[in-house]
Amino acid sequence: MRFAAFKQKYLTVFGSIALSTALSTALSIGLALSAPSSAWAMFYGFNQQAQAYEHEGDNLMDTGYYEQAISAYSQAINLLPYDAVQGRADALYARAVANDVAGHFDQASQDYSWARDYYLKAAQYANYGGSQAAEEGLTGGYDANFGQQLANLVRWRATVNPNSPDYFVDGGPMKAWNLRKMPLKVFIDDSQGTGWSQDLRDLIWRAISSWTNVSGSPIRFTQWYRADDADYIITRPSSSGQIAVGSGGFTSGIDEAQSENGKVMLKQSKSLLSCPGYDGSGYSQIDRNRLYNLALHECGHALGIGGHSPSGMDVMYWKAPILKLSDRDGATLRRMYSQ
C-alpha cells in the first residue's frame, strides 16, 4: 500500500505516548476530540472500514479506475474523525491525486489544500511529544516537509492552466538535445546491483521509445551497451537517499558548454528508477506498470522537460500513473524542439 511504511513508522511511536499527553496535544493545536482513545488511534483514526476503503482506492488507482478510486477515498475520509490528522491527510492527498488524474483540476486543488492543512497539523501533533517523543525519534519532520511541499504546489496550481494546448510554459525550464546528435545512444544498465534483467530492460526500452513515436517527434534512440560514452544512462539507485522520499525516480543532466540560439543544450542525461529488484520474474503486473510509467516519465525529463505538467492526464504530471503519452505531452515535445 502506498502509505503503509509511512504509517507504521508513526504507529510504533505513538502507541507508547501517554493518553493525557495526546489529549493535551490535540487540544493545543485546536483539534476537537470526540472521545478518549489511544494516541495513535487519534492520530490516524482507528477505523477498519475507513482503512478498507483506502486500500480499495489504492488498488483502483493501480488498475486505472480513477473515478471509482475517488469514491473509495471519499468513503474513507467520511468515516475518519476530524482529529485523525494523519489519516485524513493521507486520504485527502490520495484523493487529490485521483481527482487530478481523472481530470478534475479544481477538486484536486481543494483536496491538496485540505491535505496540506492536515499534514501541517500532524507535524505539530507529532512534535508535541517533547523529550519522550525525541527519544523515540518522533520529529514530525516528514509531515512538516510534505505539508510545505503541498503549500508550494497549491500556490503553483493557482498560476497554471491545465487545459492549454501544451505545458511548454508551465512545465519549464526547458532544455533540448542538439538534433545533430540523433539517434541518442541509450545505455540501460544490465548489472545485478544497479540494473535489470533482459525482460525489464525490454520493458524500459518500450517505454522510452514512446517519445520517438509521437507524431512529428524529432527524437531517435539507439540501444548502447557502454555507459562511458552513452548519451542517456538509465540505472537503479545504488543506495538509499539517491531518490527523494515520495519519489520513484530522479533524472539529472549535464549541459553542453555552449548554448545554441539561446537554448541550453544537453550533453548527457541520467535517470535513476526505483523498483523491486533486478529480476522481473517476481513482478506483478502492477509492478511492471509502475516501472513502465516511471521510465516513460523520467525520459521526458531526460529529453529536456525540467518541470511538470499541471494536468494529471499527462505523463509529465508529478504523480500520474499514466501509461500512454497524452496529446499535450506530444505537443510540448514538438514545441521544445521547434524553438
Rank of each mutant, 00 (worst) to 15 (best):
R2V: 13
F3I: 05
F3G: 06
A4L: 14
A4M: 13
Q8C: 01
Y10I: 12
Y10D: 14
L11I: 15
L11F: 08
S16C: 08
A18P: 03
T21W: 05
A22P: 07
S24G: 03
S28W: 07
I29E: 14
I29T: 14
G30A: 12
L31Q: 15
A32M: 02
A35C: 01
P36V: 03
S37N: 13
F43W: 01
Y44E: 06
G45K: 05
Q49Y: 04
Q51E: 15
Y53Q: 09
E56W: 05
D58N: 14
L60Q: 03
L60T: 07
E67P: 03
E67K: 08
A69E: 09
I70S: 02
Q75T: 03
Q75R: 07
I77D: 00
P81Q: 09
A84C: 01
V85I: 11
Q86V: 06
D90F: 13
A91H: 04
A96N: 00
V97E: 11
A98H: 04
G103L: 09
Q107E: 14
A108T: 07
S109A: 12
Y112V: 11
Y118Q: 08
Y118T: 05
K121P: 08
A126Y: 09
S131L: 11
Q132M: 11
Q132V: 13
A134I: 09
E135S: 14
E136L: 15
L138R: 08
D143W: 08
N145W: 06
G147Q: 13
Q149C: 09
A151C: 01
A151K: 14
N152D: 15
V154I: 08
A158Q: 15
V160M: 06
V160E: 10
N161D: 15
P162M: 03
S164Q: 09
S164A: 11
D170Q: 08
D170Y: 07
G172S: 01
P173K: 04
M174V: 12
M182C: 07
M182V: 11
L184C: 11
L184N: 12
V186M: 04
D189M: 03
D189Y: 02
Q192R: 12
S197W: 01
Q198R: 10
D199F: 05
D199V: 10
L200R: 12
S209M: 13
S209R: 14
S215Q: 12
G216A: 04
I219T: 06
T222Q: 15
W224Q: 03
D229T: 15
A230R: 06
I233V: 15
I233F: 13
G241E: 05
Q242C: 00
Q242L: 03
I243L: 05
G246D: 07
S247H: 11
G248Q: 07
T251N: 10
S252E: 04
A257Q: 08
Q258N: 14
N261S: 09
G262Y: 00
G262Q: 00
K263H: 13
M265Y: 01
M265P: 09
K270F: 05
L273Y: 02
S274V: 00
P276R: 12
D279S: 08
G280A: 10
G280K: 11
N289L: 02
L291D: 10
L291W: 04
H301M: 01
A302F: 02
A302K: 00
L303S: 01
I305Y: 11
S309Q: 11
P310I: 08
M313H: 07
M316F: 02
I322G: 04
L325P: 01
D327W: 04
D327E: 14
R328C: 02
R328Y: 02
D329W: 07
G330V: 10
A331E: 15
Q339L: 12
